[in-house]
Write a protein that binds this DNA or RNA. Structure first.
Lengths: 276, 276
DNA sequence: GCAAAAGTGTTCTGTGTACACCCATGC
DNA sequence: GCATGGGTGTACACAGAACACTTTTGC
């Protein structure tokens, strides 16, 4: 979508040999290999500094940000595709990823005539090769991902030269439709906070009570009573105390906890069995 | 998908004039007008005789049933498309319809070679015109619909000559992937029973307490305590007593109730606001 | 009068919620 | 010793669950 300026710079700063050009063109996803009209977007949530963050990327010359996205290969399932796209963009494995909604309004992706104009300036084989990605109507299957903030090193690729963790409470300007996707993803994780291992995936392995409480407060956007919160966690038996303490200073050192993954999984399984 | 036998019969019983053939071909959806690789399925729930039913259709000569489905026009949104497809198949308006999941495994729709072979026997312009519908991989956006059983008069069209209300507890043989969709739809309405106006859409305007209780018992697949059930409905204030009674005989005549739609909507809205 | 479903209240238990004080630590 | 956040218990309100008998009606 925003590939052209990058190539333009390259073609100005140095002449591209035919061989190099061929190489580049080979790397560009071809229309033939992908389901047409279908896109996948990932809303990647991370948590840092008591803020819930969303991974946004952009091409540096443009003002609008967008969510990591990609297309479905003709020979892969949509869940596979979503995972592949996520890995391509973030470089992490073992990430919680879940489909939550498909968007497909007709007017969701308006014609970007500015972009279309830029296409003409590119070396010959490129515009045709990526024309299927622009000025087309896409139906977009959305997934949300929960990642441990520190583990993510977003990758730069053809479609992005910049990335940022945006605070969900203060999103930057996003391209058409992407903001709504974030809002719906947020609604979804709020609803699923009690069923899905949201905390487990957003926090590091060891964490303090106040850290997990702050996470819940951030997601739900409201203050929780500390004593009741602890009581609930204890009654659910999903926490395991460790021997370690975090020494921050200035006050009593908080105990570090781990998740009791078994109990967490069991709780989810019960929910599952209840339904059947 | 199962269009050909129908046309074959026609072509045996009488010769089709070129004019008639042209007319028929015009009625067949053209590949150019639709998003390729994308389908929509509707899981239509109805309720009758204390059973939760799913609308299934088929071409009479074939053994497997399938769910009402269709494709998305290039100029319409997916929700619009789902509603159009539902109306085309059921002929009703004012139906509750909600997207719940998108399916897209690679192996979901296997090649139906039997069907492909039949295609060759058809008059010339038809096979090309419908070939895009068979032997293709489709990503399928699924919606569930809640309809009042008595209001539905499924329509016969190119793709179906028979319809039936199948008991969800005892589904007939469905084509690949459709059974899983029904199961997921059922899980979804069980989960959403407390948020969405499930009862309102599945029951006729006036109903008895035992009828709505039986509906809830059917969906949840467990017995509910009658006194607690009434207490809860009363506390939610979503029912309005009418003056009428149903005279069944053999025992006391039960009072008929209506939904208090305002209260129902309000309850839903609160749920909505709680999230934001 | 009897079979069959309608209709109706109370008690108990557990969960969510409100609320305040002492503790450990670094400076 | 003081500022800072960590850590802990009790009381009340409300919702869900268990539980049984009387009423109406058609035959």
């Amino acid at each position: 979508m925003v590939i052209e300026k990058r190539f333009m710079k390259t073609s100005k700063s140095m002449l591209i040999s035919k061989k190099e050009l061929k190489k580049i063109v080979q790397l560009i996803p071809s229309e033939d290999d992908y389901m047409c009209g279908l896109a996948i977007n990932c809303i990647v949530f991370g948590y840092h500094n008591k803020q819930l963050k969303v991974l946004c990327i952009r091409q540096e010359e443009l003002t609008k940000w967008y969510l990591p996205s990609g297309h479905v290969r003709k020979d892969e399932g949509i869940n596979q595709a979503a995972y592949r796209i996520l890995v391509e963009r973030t470089g992490v494995n073992n990430v919680f990823l879940k489909q939550f909604q498909t968007f497909g309004d007709v007017h969701r992706i308006p014609t970007d005539s500015e972009l279309a104009a830029e296409l003409d300036k590119l070396p010959a084989p490129i515009p045709e090769k990526i024309s299927w990605m622009v000025n087309k109507r896409f139906v977009t299957i959305c997934y949300y991902a929960l990642v441990e903030f520190s583990k993510i090193i977003p990758r730069i690729d053809f479609f992005s030269s910049e990335w940022t963790w945006a605070d969900v409470q203060n999103l930057p300007q996003l391209i058409s439709g992407n903001q709504q996707m974030v809002v719906e993803a947020l609604r979804t994780i709020r609803r699923e906070l009690q069923y899905e291992p949201i905390g487990l995936n957003l926090l590091p392995q060891k964490f303090t009570i106040s850290e997990i409480q702050a996470l819940y407060e951030t997601i739900l956007n409201k203050k929780l009573d500390n004593r009741n919160f602890v009581k609930k966690l204890v009654s659910m038996k999903i926490l395991r105390k460790t021997d370690e303490k975090r020494r921050i200073g200035g006050h009593r050192s908080p105990t570090l906890y781990k998740f009791n993954k078994q109990a967490y999984t069991k709780a989810l399984k019960q929910e599952f069995e209840m339904i059947f």
